[in-house]
Each structure stands twice: as structure tokens, then as C-alpha cells.
């Protein structure tokens, strides 16, 4: 899937002097037969402090994390342990006060805003606890939203049939082909999360960032979502980083990272 991407990296319009070629997977490297674990995304000694009025609340106090390509990592911890913040830093939704975030060993957290927007659109896919679908748009339009952001109105219009077909296929994969033209308000929680997963995948990202994807679902629906995620991880070699506080959910990942009070507590292999 990644090999026949919609746009070749050379045609990206970053407009900021960033050469995205460095950030995208180098085919030569991915095809390497050496079983050397290759760092895909990496946080180095990141610290983050939030201000709440007069008080400074340290959320992350120097966290290192290194995720390999195709790895499924869960970040677990109690509420306020900083796990969501870490995910946001990795996904470039926020910038660390100290430390850096690297993609293929290239620093990406200090890039200009436009390039970070572009990376979020092309490299990362986000899934949230509360699904965060746009209420005005129907399911297909929600799924297409990242592509609408990526392409100009003219390009999107020219390719709308092809892109819509992709979206419908993807929705079929996640089991939502019967809800294409429904508004999010008309869907159940599980269906909304499936739609959100389809939206995260439509841009063919390399890294899927999931923030409590099952947190709002009952256990059986949650389990279905988890099966979907593990399947994606297995089939498409997708790197998945998932935040959860549910041990049984976390156990389904390759590796579990525990955060306590903004510090990394332990690495453990789930499998």
C-alpha cells in the first residue's frame, strides 16, 4: 500500500525549504534484509510543562522512547501521567520544551509550522478517544477530509471519483460500507471509531497514533477495534503507538511503555 503512494515525495509542495525525502521511508532501507531494528520515530529526553495560571505543572520530565518500523507500542499510565502529551509531541500536535522528536533520525519538532502541518497530514494518522469526527460531514466526507486538506480544490475535484472509491474501499475494510452517507450523529460509538480509523488511514500514513481508541467503547466493541488495529499492523507494516490505561488492551501490543508522573518507568515486552 505504501509503495504506490498517491503522490511521489518529489511532488510535495512544502513551500518551506523542507525536503521531505529525508523523512519518508527510503525504499533501499526498508528493503534491507538485515534484521537490525530500525528507528522509525524517536523522542529524545523530551520535557513538557504546562502553565495553569501561576502554577507550572511539569507533565513530562525527560522521556526517551524509540519505536521501530512496524512496531505496535502501547503507552500505559494513570491519568495525568503525561501519556497523551507524549503522543501529541510525537504527532507534532505540540512541541516539547526540551528534547527532540526524530523521524528516521531527522529532527522534526523544530520544523516550520507549514512542514509540520504537512507531516501530520502525510506521515501520521490520528485516532482519538472521542472519535472527533466533523459533525457537519457524512462518513465518506469525514474519511476524505485529510485528502481534501492535502490537495487543492482543483486537484481534489479532478480526482474525486478515484479518491472516493479509495475511501469506500477503506470503509468496507473497517466494516462500515453500509453507513457511507450517514452523519456521525447517526452512528454508534464503535462505528464512529471505525470511521475515524478509516480517516486516519486514508492518507496512507506510516505511523498511527491512537489516543485511548477503546476508552469510550464497551469491551466487546473495544476488542473489535483492537483486532482491526492489530490486523493493520500485521498487514501493512504500520507503526502503531497507542495510549491506553486498560492493561488488557495494552497487552495486545508488541511492547508496553509505562509512564509514571512524567517519567518512563519500564520497558516490557508484552508478547
Amino acid at each position: 500500500m505504501n509503495d504506490n503512494d498517491h503522490v511521489s515525495p518529489a511532488s510535495l509542495s512544502t513551500g518551506s525549504g523542507l525536503n521531505l525525502n529525508h523523512c519518508l521511508p527510503n525504499p533501499a532501507m526498508t528493503n534491507e534484509t538485515v534484521k537490525m531494528p530500525q528507528s522509525h520515530i524517536q523522542a529524545v529526553a523530551v520535557e513538557k510543562t504546562y502553565r495553569k495560571g501561576e502554577h507550572r505543572i511539569p507533565v513530562l520530565r525527560g522521556v526517551d522512547i524509540d519505536v521501530h518500523r512496524g512496531e505496535f507500542v502501547s503507552i500505559v499510565g494513570q491519568s495525568g501521567s503525561g501519556k497523551s502529551t507524549l503522543l501529541h509531541l510525537l504527532g507534532l500536535l505540540d512541541v516539547p520544551d526540551v528534547g527532540e522528536v526524530n523521524l528516521y533520525s531527522q529532527r522534526i519538532d523544530d520544523l516550520p509550522e507549514r512542514s509540520r502541518d504537512e507531516l501530520r497530514n502525510r506521515v501520521f494518522g490520528f485516532i482519538f478517544q472521542f472519535y472527533h469526527l466533523l459533525p457537519e460531514l457524512n462518513v465518506v466526507e469525514n474519511v476524505l477530509a485529510p485528502l481534501m486538506i492535502r490537495y487543492s480544490a482543483r486537484d481534489f475535484w479532478k480526482r474525486r471519483r478515484e479518491l472516493r472509491k479509495d475511501a469506500c474501499e477503506l470503509l468496507e475494510t473497517v466494516g462500515l460500507s453500509h453507513r457511507l452517507n450517514h452523519k456521525p450523529a447517526e452512528l454508534s460509538g464503535g462505528e464512529m471509531q471505525r470511521a475515524a480509523i478509516a480517516r486516519a488511514l486514508i492518507g496512507k500514513p506510516e505511523i498511527l497514533l491512537a489516543d485511548e481508541p477503546t476508552g469510550n467503547l464497551d469491551s466487546s466493541t473495544g476488542q473489535e477495534i483492537m483486532e482491526l488495529l492489530t490486523g493493520l499492523n500485521g498487514v501493512d507494516d504500520l507503526t502503531i503507538i497507542m495510549v491506553t490505561h486498560d492493561e488488557s488492551i495494552a497487552q495486545q501490543a508488541h511492547r508496553i511503555v509505562r509512564l509514571t508522573e512524567g517519567r518512563l518507568q519500564a520497558w516490557s515486552d508484552a508478547a
Binding site: 504527532g91 500536535l93 509550522e113 507549514r114 502541518d117 504537512e118 507531516l119 501530520r120 497530514n121 502525510r122 490520528f126 472527533h132 469526527l133 466533523l134 459533525p135 477530509a145 485529510p146 486538506i149 492535502r150 480517516r199 492518507g203
Partner: peptide, 16 residues
């Protein structure tokens, strides 16, 4: 506000 956050997470620029 929330929708604006979503759009930004999906890669929409501030000017967009």
C-alpha cells in the same frame, strides 16, 4: 473549537 483542533490534527494549516 474541537473541529478546528481536528482539522489541525489532520494537517490543516492555520491559514487554511
Amino acid at each position: 473549537t474541537r473541529d478546528i483542533g481536528i482539522l489541525k490534527a489532520l494537517g490543516a494549516s492555520s491559514s487554511g
